[in-house]
Design a protein around this nucleic acid. Sequence first.
RNA 1: GGCUCAAUGGAGAAGCGGUUAACUCACUGCCCUCUCAAGGCAGCAUUCAUGGGUUCGAAUCCCGUUUGAGCUACCA
Length: 551
Amino acid sequence: MTDYEKLANLIFPDINLTIDDLEKRYPKRDLKEGAIVDRFAPSPTGFLHSGSLFTALVGYKFALQTGGVFMLRLEDTDTKREIEGSGEKLLTEMKEFGVVPMEGYFGTYEEGSYGPYCQSDRALIYNTVIKDMIRRGLAYPCFCSHEDLDALRKTQEEKKENPGYYGEYAKCSHLIPSEAIKKIENGESYIIRFRSTGNHLNKIHVHDLIKGDLDLSENDQHIVILKSDGLPTYHFAHLCDDHFMRTTIVMRGEEWLSSLPIHYELFNTLGFELPKYAHLPVIMKQDNGKRRKLSKRLDQEAAVSYFLERGYSRDAIVEYLFTLANSNFEEWRLSHMNDNIYDFDFSFEKFNVDGALFDLDKINDISKERLSRLSKEEFTVKALEYANKYDHNLKDLIERDRDYFMSIINIEREKENPRKDYVKFEDVFDFIKFFYKDYYDEILSNGLEFNEKFNKGKIKEVLLTHLCSLDLTQDEQTWFQTMKDTMESLGFAPNKKELRDNPNKYIGTIGDASEIIRVALTGRKSSPNLYYVEKILTNSEIRRRFENVIK
RNA sequence: GGCUCAAUGGAGAAGCGGUUAACUCACUGCCCUCUCAAGGCAGCAUUCAUGGGUUCGAAUCCCGUUUGAGCUACCA
């Protein structure tokens, strides 16, 4: 037995597996040509970030359209930052947006034969690989303390050299196995580092599916692969997991680009086939004229829950993310307005290389559009679903009388270009509450704002005249004609042109008369089409409201 | 500081050596209209961060500058 083997056995006495065993246990996937296997690998440190949803969505879509596999792997190796229960929260939020993994971690259970899918459960795999690496001299225990490392950094900074644990500075890499064994037997604490043979003066050539061809400096850092808590670091977990889970394309945020040389060397020294990489642009935010990464701490909209709580159309959020992913999507969308957006195929070529600013205006527009294209039944189901969780006032209105609610939100909905009154379900309650007696009475008690041009007598006259001539069995055309006729007798011109031509004959236009009726009925200067409002309110309620206003 | 990537209107962008520099959102004006929403029309980059070069010809290719972003942990 060599000294390296002794060292490996001392550190991992219970590991009997070999890399070969793992290769057999996790065989290559039998998928059709071009099928993409990718993964979403969040760490359970909080809620789902809008940028993470983007990454997950892109991975999901690619797997879907190529007949591949999209899996969820939980990167729970940072025990300090872990937030209890956030893994499941992440998953439910993804589901809200229709992003459902085909394999992996599902909160209370796992699915798939490449697991476990929580990194904290994969110690056997990591340890097996590391034991083999130590045996072959590719990894070694490092006994340096945090203080040693800080001191090292300081001297490197003074000498203006690259900071880090590498080359001559990698003190523990020079320890021969017998010395390391002695230290361990003395009870010194250690972590495991990777023995890099790279030189940062050399260049490696890599191809990124989105960024294109890149020349990067070779890695020379002896990175930590196993921390003192026994858990692997991201880099090492990435190596083992994506190799043994047979990931074909690693899709991740571009903040990972600079650690690609590490991964490149890791895969090469283990003789594992390097996966393809696609580094996605990061979503940015304008802040005081500067752009920066969308931040969970600073920006509310960075958390996906922002959109859920306000009742945005979830389809619209997905659709917006599609526009960020592929620049030609919007154009496609214009000619496929009523199709499923998943019919559109993503391509890596159409990805933008740099991060886009998060555009709430655009999201609002898309959400408004999506909500307007829902049938009244769909709208109501979704509104209630939202209201149940976030909006008790709205919930109450819907449950009082579902048909009444539907007739309100259906005003000018069933036509080619429907009204776009609501950006999000949060807007609905305020917009429609005047239809309900109790809320109307509340509005009335706060006072109505009529046009000051007209005195109380005139207002009363308009309301009474309108009420007398009102016949809601008429169609819209006739109804409006009746209104024009009756209002003309009170001095309101039937259109602006008439008023312009005969300024002395009229005191206003039909628009002014309508405003009086509108304010009396709704408490507002703008509302949907008065004809439909009146049809929904019915004669008796219109009479009641007018009488109260006149009082 | 070092390394890497990027730069087309307020935002997302098309553009791949010859275009009046598409399109979407936002914005502005007009029209339509009972208000709003919707819709229609028009406007919104004589110029693609900047300076140089290559070329008959450059937003497109090359170099420098500037600006921005990301990384530079026993975090992911």
